[in-house]
């Protein structure tokens, strides 16, 4: 038994000492956590917009408040993007990160619930009876955004960025509410 314990101790010692003995010292493990936090914030802003849409859709928020808040989020997201850009050092991993996020922004037409008015092409946010711009009734004529259509028809396929994104170590455990 003591032999087993001794071997275990030895194994641990080797593993612990190994980093010091390696010829090529491990690369600088530090990543720019400020930027990562910025991206996390951008992600949660996406969630906020999605929640806002949902609340509006359910009817907890009236149209004008919805628009006002959407506008605020829009501006906040923009200034956040700018802040990230300004503090950014070129880094392919982060470019990838940004691409994923922007792509997510784009697909945030959220899960197909964003509609485009068939009459005038206006992006519709709510599900009122008529388009606020041209007055066309949407329930029968609205078509889905391209993104939503692709999602539904399965054209998107496996997310090619997901794997890379995981490697970049940025998959948060989740991003969720309550």
């Amino acid at each position: 038994m003591l032999v087993v314990a001794g071997m275990l101790a030895l194994l641990c010692a080797i593993a612990v000492l190994h980093p010091f003995l390696r010829r090529d010292p491990p690369g600088d493990a530090e990543t720019d956590s400020d930027n990562a936090a910025g991206y996390a914030e951008l992600e949660s802003m996406l969630d906020s917009i999605q929640t806002l849409q949902l609340e509006h859709q359910i009817g907890n928020i009236p149209e004008d408040t919805f628009r006002e808040h959407l506008q605020t989020y829009r501006l906040e997201a923009a200034s956040l993007l700018r802040r990230i850009d300004e503090s950014r050092v070129p880094d392919p991993e982060q470019d990838l990160e940004r691409q994923v996020l922007l792509a997510r922004l784009a697909s945030n037409g959220v899960n197909g619930t964003w509609l485009v008015c068939a009459g005038c092409g206006e992006q519709l946010m709510g599900h009122g009876e008529a388009c606020p711009v041209c007055g066309q009734s949407q329930s029968t004529t609205a078509r889905r955004t391209e993104g939503a259509r692709r999602v539904e028809e399965g054209e998107g396929g496996e997310d090619p960025l997901a794997g890379l994104r995981r490697e970049a170590g940025t998959t948060p455990l989740d991003d969720s509410e309550e």
């Binding site: 850009d85 691409q99 922007l102 784009a106």
Partner: peptide, 22 residues
């Protein structure tokens, strides 16, 4: 359900967005 990780959503290619920054 609340904790189940949300995967990155399927991206829609919007090439103009991918040239960053500036």
């Amino acid at each position: 359900i609340a904790l189940w990780p949300q995967p990155a959503r399927i991206p829609v290619r919007a090439p103009s967005l991918l040239t960053v920054p500036g």
